[in-house]
Computed example of a mutant assay.
Amino acid sequence: MTIKVLVVDDSNFFRRRVSEIINASPYLEVIATANNGKEAIDMVVKHKPDVITMDVEMPVMDGITAVQKIMDLVPTPILMFSSLTHQGASATLDALDAGACDFLPKKFEDIARDKQEAITLLQQRIQMIARRRVQRVPEKKSGLVKPVANVATTINPTLSRLQPKNDGHEVAIKSTATHRNKASGKSYNVLAIGTSTGGPVALQKILTALPQNFKLPIVLVQHMPGTFTKAFSERLNSNCKITVKEAETGDILKPGCAYLAPGGKQMLIAANGQIKIHEGNEALNYKPSVDITFASLAKSYTNKVLAIILTGMGADGRDGARLLKSKGSEIWAQDEASCVVYGMPQAVTKAGIATESIALDQVAKRILVELKHE
């Protein structure tokens, strides 16, 4: 059974290009196209697609408004296309707040080393979010919007490169991790969080719930382009009680401050809490990489790290989390039901690395309990 896709963009050339890529996959089929948000809403109601690809900037009705209305009328997984500019990043983050699941740059060469890799990535992204049923849930305090996923993702063989190995059919791994309602008694010097697809909304939900006097410094690794991490850190800082900034070389970890790894680079943390940002190996798939940052924390903070893996495609973070656990640090994972994509959390859970599997709306509360925060 193919995944039905609606392609929305005001450029006829781009609609045709994206449609050709989608239809080249045996698992995907473009059932309709639209050239603005208003047409998109009509097409969604008429055709009920499994996934929508949506441009941010369009005449008549822009993509952000269209996402809001679609999530109110017929909640559907939406993949946004955006320009890699600060303004484009801000608009895309607005679309994610409104309920979109994920985004990709409009210039495919910005996300891949060659044409075939870009084609494969787009097809995989659509497949990964296709089986997530989402609903628009306004946040009371910050006005943010959370897409809630509650159906297991169907995995096709073509996804094996990015997804932890499974039986080839449905990801339905039941976590053996337990969820405690009281502190473990461990002590920590840093909180580290790694995430990818669905991460911007997940991080907003967690960080906005933390108090201004939060006891620990926070290290954040989100798969995201450089222009997006700058805009995202600014948005988080304006919405949170804690301080949030894009990390820079020379920053020293301080309690109550979160440091977001800059896109396109790698972030290392030294034993004295000093941050080092560098270009990293070009061969690495992820820049920033959760594995790289977590590995540096395992070396510098050993058993004093509380690390959490949130929603995301692939298995980045598994090896770094394994190193942290071998040093005595604590590893948690987001549970499957609340993930947009249960790839990264599944990887650490299935490997027996995570000690707890926690619903997104319980993560902040669980952190505060673990740290005995007053």
Rank of each mutant, 00 (worst) to 15 (best):
E336V: 06
K372A: 15
E282R: 08
L216T: 02
E109S: 15
A202P: 00
N150L: 15
A321K: 04
I64V: 13
E370W: 05
L324C: 09
P345L: 11
I129R: 00
R322G: 12
K182R: 13
E282W: 05
Q123Y: 01
E279V: 10
P211L: 09
A295P: 03
D110N: 14
G194W: 01
E279Y: 05
V348T: 09
V145D: 12
N281K: 14
V7A: 10
L162Q: 06
G199T: 09
S90E: 14
V341F: 02
T293W: 03
K106R: 13
A364S: 07
T195A: 09
S357N: 10
D72N: 15
L121D: 03
G63W: 00
G198Y: 05
Q274S: 13
E39K: 10
T208D: 08
T176R: 15
V5A: 08
Q127S: 06
N281W: 11
A231W: 03
R161G: 12
T195V: 13
I21C: 05
S19G: 06
H169C: 09
P77W: 02
M1E: 14
E117C: 06
V244I: 10
N12L: 15
T249Y: 06
A209R: 13
T355H: 12
I275A: 08
N12M: 14
V363I: 14
F228W: 06
V18L: 14
I353D: 00
K46N: 11
Q127H: 05
G168F: 09
P138E: 11
L310P: 00
A149R: 07
V363S: 00
I275Y: 07
P105Y: 13
T229Y: 07
L260I: 08
Q127N: 10
T53G: 01
N213A: 15
T249P: 04
I173T: 14
N303V: 11
P200T: 06
A231R: 03
M344R: 04
V201D: 08
E170D: 15
V305M: 00
S357D: 08
D97R: 07
K182C: 12
K140W: 12
D361V: 11
T197S: 03
S90K: 12
K215W: 08
M61T: 13
R161F: 12
L93C: 10
K4M: 06
V171D: 08
H179L: 10
V145C: 15
A100Y: 00
D110G: 07
K372Y: 12
Y27K: 10
D291C: 03
L323F: 10
C257L: 08
I21E: 04
V44R: 01
T227D: 13
I367G: 02
D94Y: 01
M224E: 08
T249H: 09
G63A: 01
L210T: 04
N181W: 15
G198M: 07
L79Y: 02
P225W: 06
A209I: 11
K48E: 14
T349S: 11
H86K: 15
E234P: 02
K276D: 14
Y301A: 04
G273M: 07
T243H: 04
L297P: 02
L210W: 06
L6S: 01
A100R: 00
S326F: 13
L84M: 12
L284G: 07
V56F: 04
L220Q: 02
A333Q: 04
